[in-house]
């Protein structure tokens, strides 16, 4: 982590691509998550899993269709999701809304890295093969496609090899 210090400034709530490292420094220490929060994360995950399947976002067919520019479906989903999320973020920022347990909500500024270009393109190449980004990988598996367990295992392996090679890669 030490060599990343100059990549972000904790004081200004700035974060780069290394979210976990900065969260450790910026957020107050907690004594584990409360039961209510755990239930909240689990329910939010369940809802997300349901819409990934019901919106056919986990479908390899839909991903092919998106990249063949043959349907508005996926573009509509991503576009309206970003729109609604942006409004939500603006409301939280302008009203200084706090979390349900009264903590101020913190936003991070992302900083440019070559990883967004090189890694981003690499992810895109893999995305159209598996028909899944990371969320749908889990959902494909949950939906009963055991072969997606193989994709998921290799995605974890890919993440591990990034950790191994990280210092040698341009950022």
């Amino acid at each position: 982590m030490e060599n990343l210090q100059n990549k972000y400034s904790v004081d200004e709530n700035v974060v780069t691509w290394d979210h976990a490292a900065v969260a450790e420094k910026t957020l107050k220490p907690t004594n584990g998550e409360s039961t209510g929060k755990v239930a909240g994360y689990l329910l939010a995950g369940i809802l997300f899993g349901i819409i990934l399947v019901k919106g056919e976002i986990i479908s390899w067919y839909r991903i092919q269709e998106m990249f063949l520019l043959d349907s508005f479906h996926m573009y509509g989903i991503i576009g309206s999701a970003v729109f609604v999320a942006a409004i939500g973020i603006q409301i939280i920022k302008s009203t200084k809304t706090k979390t349900f347990d009264g903590q101020p909500i913190i936003f991070y500024k992302k900083i440019f890295s070559w990883g967004q270009i090189i890694g981003g393109t690499m992810f895109g190449l893999g995305w159209a093969l598996t028909g899944a980004c990371p969320g749908p990988l889990y959902a494909q598996f949950g939906s009963g496609f055991m072969a997606a367990g193989v994709s998921l295992f290799f995605a974890i392996a890919g993440t591990w090899f990034y950790g191994l090679l990280r210092d040698k890669l341009p950022h």
Binding site: G119, M122, G126, L129, L137, L152, F154, A155, A157, G158
Partner: peptide
Amino acid sequence: GGFMVGFGT
């Protein structure tokens, strides 16, 4: 495909 998704993201 899976490897590139994990490494790339």
